[in-house]
């Protein structure tokens, strides 16, 4: 793991991917250091998903600069190979059903990036990814098509796909939304394991960024918080800072204190 920031955004204007004239979040200044756990909170439609996609270099920013591991991933004369090299160091778990590939089964979905980047067969992947699949409790679903999975399991498959290449940075879009309590408990354990480092996840601590519509389930010590509210970006700080900012309208809404 290098000492360079995992994500560095300076004066970034997060814009709508289909309509770059529409600004979703203004002046994002954000540095994610290796090993940190950030929670980006915001209501639905506040631009969190696009922020994560912009940070991952998937959606061009309207202005400012975005660096991943010290490298620019948008604009300029970047080679496809170079961009791919940088992207392999991050994993992105999309919201909802995780944007799985419907023509592939669960195992093929998870193994695809591993096989592609190592030019390896599915048999090799089965051996190498065994501990990860066991950790994710996906063993009995490997032959299923994504369309037959419920949201909770589909999201876990998407997590497996993102973790398969052994990323240093994991971006999670609304990981806890729409899950039952058992799955929420599993995800909270996973987030702690990933943050501390776990043998099945490569052994080293992952840098984590989780976007969320609720603050409470993720409000634990050692985490850092940022807020996207009404098109503005605010760094809230630690868990204590969030709790002391309860009077703030945006924080209150995300803590559910308005009720």
């Amino acid at each position: 793991m290098s000492d360079l920031p995992s994500i560095e955004m300076q004066d970034v204007r997060v814009v709508h991917p289909r309509n770059p004239g529409v600004t979703l979040i203004e002046e994002v200044g954000w540095v994610v250091e290796p090993g940190e756990f950030w929670v980006v909170a915001g209501l639905q439609g506040s631009g969190k998903t696009v922020l994560l996609e912009t940070a991952a270099g998937l959606t061009p920013q309207g202005g400012g600069s975005v660096r991943l591991f010290g490298e620019e991933v948008q604009g300029g004369q970047r080679d496809v190979e170079e961009v791919s090299e940088v992207r392999r160091r991050l994993g992105l778990v999309f919201d909802g059903n995780g944007r799985l590939f419907p023509s592939l089964n669960v195992f093929e979905n998870i193994a695809l990036p591993w096989c592609y980047h190592r030019n390896a067969s599915l048999a090799d992947a089965a051996e190498a990814l065994g501990p990860l699949l066991e950790y994710l409790q996906l063993d009995r679903l490997l032959d299923q098509r994504p369309g037959r999975l419920g949201r909770a399991w589909a999201r876990r498959v998407a997590l497996g796909r993102a973790l398969a290449t052994g990323p240093e940075l994991l971006l999670l879009d609304n990981p806890l939304s729409g899950l039952d309590m058992a799955h929420i408990r599993w995800w909270r354990t996973f987030l702690s394991d990933a943050s501390r480092g776990h043998a099945a996840l490569g052994g080293r601590p992952l840098t984590l960024v989780a976007a969320s519509e609720e603050l409470r389930p993720l409000l634990l010590p050692g985490r850092r918080f940022a807020l996207a509210h009404n098109g503005r970006w605010r760094l809230l700080g630690s868990t204590e800072d969030v709790l002391s900012a309860r009077g703030d309208e945006g924080v209150r809404e995300l803590l559910g204190d308005n009720d």
């Binding site: 996609e53 998937l58 496809v80 791919s84 992207r87 999309f94 944007r99 590939f101 993102a162 290449t165």
Partner: peptide
């Protein structure tokens, strides 16, 4: 239809996020 649906549902971005061209 298959590719257009994949594009509309963001599966192409999912490929890019995995470093797959």
């Amino acid at each position: 239809i298959e590719l257009g649906t994949a594009r509309a549902l963001g599966e192409v971005e999912a490929l890019e996020a995995l470093g797959i061209d």
